[in-house]
Amino acid sequence: MTHTTDNAWEHPEVQLAGGGYIVAFVVGLALMGLSLWMVRGHVFAPTGLAVAISALAAVAAFVQCVLLLHMTVSRTQVWQTVALVLFIPLFVITIGLTSWMFHGLYRRTMMMPATHVARPATPTRPRGA
């Protein structure tokens, strides 16, 4: 073992933290609460809602990257940043290809009236009515 310390205060992550962790925690909670409220209350039309919560998610991710992971290019932290950058292609591959697949799939397999897709079918309505 080349380098070791039992004293948590000597770890660069801990020294960098300051009050950041608490702030990140509170901000994260607030953002999640906000998006939950928006979804439960249907405050926008579906498209607007999707855009709004995606934007909030992006803010949350940013807050986490900066305040929790300390992604900077300083000597001690650059490896965290590199890890994120390496992760981006994976993100693009998995999410991108998945959405491509589902995009075509829905048209092929979900041949039903748009009302059924938007909200669950009400069982009482007679078929074909």
Partner: peptide, 21 residues
């Protein structure tokens, strides 16, 4: 290996372009 997983469900009815990819 990250870009091939869909070959486990080629028959799931994805579009031909997706399957070909």
């Amino acid at each position: 290996s990250w870009g091939v997983w869909l070959h486990h469900f080629f028959t799931m009815a994805a579009s031909p372009a997706v399957n070909a990819f």
